[in-house]
Amino acid sequence: MSARENILARIRRQQGRSGPTTAEEMALVRANIREHGVGPKPLAAQAEDSLELFKRECQRLLTTFAEVDEATVPHEVARYCAEANIAKSLAGWREYSHLHWPAAGIDYAARAANKDDTVGFTGCFCAIAETGTLLLLSSPDQPKLNALLPETHICVVPKARIVPTMEDAFALVRTEVGEPPRSMFFVSGPSRTADIEQTIVIGAHGPYRVHVILI
C-alpha cells in the first residue's frame, strides 16, 4: 500500500468507517463546497462607505494614496517620485503604457521588473476596503514581480473596483475570471518584519513604499 492509501485508510479507520471514501461522501463534500457559505464579517466592514474605509485602512498600513483622473496619473507619479526623491523610471504593466508618460518626464518600460528596478508600476484586479488590500492576479501582461522586487510599488486602483470584503473579491474572481489563475496575490501595505526584538521595521524583502493612485 502506498503512503496515500495508508493515510486515507488510517483517517477512515479512526473515524470508524470502513473501505475507501465513497461516492456519496465525495458528493456531500462537493455540495458543501458549492454552497460557498460565508461567515460573519466584521460589522465595520459592512456599515461604512467602501472608499472611505479603504482609505482609512491604507493609512493604518502606511500605504499612501492620491485621487486623480486617469489622464493625470503620470503627473501624480512624477509628483510622488519627486517628493520621495526617487528616480522617475518605472517598470510597469503593459496596460498603462499608453498614458502620456514622457510628458510627465517619466521613463516607462512595459515589462516585468528585475532586480535593478527601483519603481514598479501595476494595476490591480480589485481592492478590498475592509483591510486596505490590493488583489493582483497573475497573467502574461501583469507580472507579479513589479509589485514585489522594486523598493517602491505604485498601484492604480479604479474606485469602482473597491469591494467591501475579501469574500466579495473572490466572488468577482469567479464571475469575471472563472478558475483562479496561478497566483492570487493580496498586498496590504509595504513589507515589514518584527523579527529582531519585535521591533517593526518597514521594508523587509518586498517594497519599502506602496503608493495607491485612486482613479
Binding site: E57, R60, L61, A112, T131, G132, T133, S138, S139, P140, P143, K144, L145, E179, P180, P181, R182, S183, M184, F185, F186, V187, S188, G189, P190, S191, R192, A194, G206
Partner: peptide, 24 residues
C-alpha cells in the same frame, strides 16, 4: 498572532505557470 488586521502578503498559488506568464 501579532495584532495586525491583515498580514502584508497573502499568496494564493494554484498550479504551475500558465502559457505566456512571465513569472511562476
Amino acid at each position: 498572532a501579532v495584532g495586525q488586521t491583515i498580514a502584508n502578503y497573502l499568496t494564493l498559488t494554484t498550479g504551475t505557470k500558465m502559457p505566456g506568464d512571465q513569472d511562476g
